[in-house]
């Protein structure tokens, strides 16, 4: 969280596996597009795994614990999973799942960050080898970027 942690490699613990990222939105289209945007903006090289978990399994708007858990398992490489959420039931569902303790991979973490900017920051940091703390910090720091 310190200013010195600004470089992309901050927090790289030397582990070879990247942190995974899950993007939870009420809308499948939003989650998928933000994942695509983050991949596009994160640039070349090997990217850390990122998966969308948007909407309900039947394609409606809402939050699905089933899709969240599946995405988290899909990106888990053993280095932790950063979960970014949009609002309302997405926040509450992830919090409730973390409290439950056995449906999400161990060392999954709800990251307090703006959804779009946080996703980009998280993916860049995770792809550069940042550990879960560094990924979470980078995503949260996106709140500090003022637009006017």
């Amino acid at each position: 969280m310190s200013g010195a942690a600004g470089s992309a490699g901050a927090g790289n613990g030397g582990g070879s596996q990247p942190v995974g990222i899950v993007l939870v939105s009420h809308s499948s289209a939003v989650a998928t597009a933000v994942a695509e945007l983050a991949r596009g903006l994160a640039g070349g090289g090997d990217l850390a795994p990122v998966l969308p978990a948007g909407g309900t399994p039947d394609g409606g708007l809402g939050t699905s614990s089933e899709l969240i858990c599946a995405a988290a398992k899909g990106v888990d490489r053993g280095a932790g999973v950063a979960i970014l959420v949009d609002l309302g039931s997405a926040v509450l569902t992830v919090k409730a799942l973390l409290a439950e303790g056995d449906d999400l991979p161990e060392s999954s973490r709800l990251v307090d960050a703006p959804f779009v900017e946080g996703a980009v920051a998280a993916l860049v940091t995770a792809s550069a080898g940042g550990d879960l703390d560094a990924v979470a910090a980078a995503a949260s720091e996106a709140y500090a970027y003022r637009k006017e």
């Binding site: 309900t56 699905s64 309302g88 039931s89 509450l92 569902t93 919090k95 409730a96």
Partner: peptide, 8 residues
């Protein structure tokens, strides 16, 4: 549930 009432 799929909405906030589920986790609550």
């Amino acid at each position: 549930v799929g909405g906030a009432s589920g986790p609550l």
